[in-house]
């Protein structure tokens, strides 16, 4: 990384701070994945990395390359938008799969289907 030496001091401090903070948030999210005990609690942990982590690291990247090339750089915003828009698919899929499994196993503490299945007419 020879680029870092080209950065002015204020930008270097800002970029490093944001990157380290974003990485720390992603790390905390991963720790949460290990520490939490139930599947539904674990659903929350990775969203730390996909919201806060991505936001901070992409901001750092925007600042770094904008200062280095002395022009506005915006295409990192696309990364933020696409990550924010696509994570719900995976999480909803996982959540629904877990709900389905727990309902079939009749696990304790899992809410039942909101609409009970329609009863078949008895002939």
């Amino acid at each position: 990384m020879s680029h870092v030496t080209d950065l002015p001091v204020w930008a270097a401090i800002l970029v490093c701070g944001l990157t380290v903070l974003g990485a720390a948030i992603a790390l905390i999210g991963s720790v949460g994945l290990l520490r939490f005990t139930s599947f539904y609690e674990r659903l929350h942990a990775p969203t730390l990395a996909t919201s806060g982590g991505v936001l901070l690291i992409c901001t750092a990247s925007i600042i770094c390359f904008a200062v280095l090339q002395s022009r506005w750089v915006f295409h990192e915003i696309l990364i933020i938008v696409f990550v924010l828009v696509t994570t719900p698919m995976t999480l909803m899929l996982l959540g629904q799969a877990a709900l389905y499994r727990d309902r079939v196993e009749e696990k304790h503490g899992v809410p039942l289907k909101q609409r009970p299945p329609r009863e078949e007419p008895v002939e």
């Binding site: 999210g29 539904y40 659903l43 929350h44 942990a45 969203t47 730390l48 996909t50 919201s51 806060g52 924010l84 828009v85 994570t87 719900p88 999480l91 909803m92 959540g95 629904q96 709900l99 909101q114 609409r115």
Partner: peptide, 16 residues
């Protein structure tokens, strides 16, 4: 759904 997933602490599970 995007907003609720993007804010950690709430997870969208099922919409009837």
């Amino acid at each position: 759904a995007c907003v609720m997933t993007a804010t950690p602490g709430t997870a969208w599970l099922e919409y009837d």
